[in-house]
Design a protein around this nucleic acid. Structure first.
Lengths: 163, 163
DNA sequence: ATATGATATTTCAAGCTTGAAATTTCAGGC
DNA sequence: GCCTGAAATTTCAAGCTTGAAATATCATAT
């Protein structure tokens, strides 16, 4: 029963008797720690930010290109946000923007050749970091965690009718 | 076997065969969705931000007061960040700052009477929202999830020697 | 053809976040 | 009493994020 974590938990100290809040704080802490390490890793080793990596990852999976709206939906961020991140990637020559042939309101973003090449390295590092951070969980535990988070995701989908 | 979530998963679409990345993305999605809803709830109903709530929650648990550094450690954010959030709370009369009697470099933040009163309502809403979002998980599942996240937290503590 | 409502996007102000540099204070050793 | 390195904090530029307002385009009914 490995329970005593040495990592600080957000809001730690005298704890509520409210188990649901404790569960949420633990979830938040794990996510925050992983996210910060990925961010640091990308910043230190590759001079790129996590949001830009996210956009590149989405585009890498859609070689046909994506509109701003599609990116916004896929990444769960606002339209205005996508605009800024994509503009930075265009400035760095990782992404190209072309007007949509079918809809004058939209433009389509695609990875450039340079973008594809760079992303390959980023994705590899990303995968390795995550693998290392999850090293403490066995195959069995990963499966259970993935399944339970699926239940949670379903729970969240109930009232928050996001299509 | 409830597996088909209707909530979009970040980076969804053609998925890697890399299970660890999928697990991470699911973790990230759950946390992001919950965090956005809490943020929205506080903004809409209480005109306060999540970071300010976090600071108030930490201070509520430490009636003797906390230094900036203690807040920074407890909340897993930078010193400079705490400065700004606390200043906003001082401006709104929720928090008071007093020079430390023992260390001239530090000042001690405390909830004011107004801050304590307001926080009670915020905490109640916060708890209710979380309870509602976790409604899809039974007592058993919550326990398992909490335990597995504990394992993950331990896994994260291994290399990231955070004291 | 035009008017109208819907859709896609950009712009912008406000707020959070970080890391690095600067400032102030502390704690010992001389 | 000083000097010096360590520690606590603030300041600041750069970047992310959102929501609301403004633009531009589309689709459709007339």
């Amino acid at each position: 029963m490995t329970r005593t974590a040495s990592l600080r938990e957000k809001h730690d100290g005298a704890l509520d008797d409210r188990g649901s809040v404790r569960l949420w704080l633990r979830l938040l802490t794990c996510t925050t720690v992983i996210e910060k390490r990925l961010k640091r890793g990308f910043a230190d080793g590759y001079d790129i930010t996590l949001p830009r990596f996210d956009v590149m990852a989405a585009l890498d999976r859609h070689p046909e290109g994506m509109t701003m709206g599609q990116l916004s939906q896929a990444l769960l961020v606002s339209n205005g946000n996508v605009t800024g991140v994509v503009q930075a990637l265009v400035r760095d020559r990782y992404v190209s923007l072309a007007p949509s042939p079918t809809d004058g309101r939209s433009s389509v973003a695609r990875l450039t050749q340079l973008g594809r090449e760079c992303f390959a390295g980023l994705a590899e590092a990303h995968h390795a970091w995550i693998e290392a951070m999850l090293a403490g969980l066995g195959r069995e535990e990963r499966g259970q965690l993935h399944q339970l988070l699926g239940v949670l995701k379903d729970s969240l989908a109930v009232d928050g009718e996001k299509e």
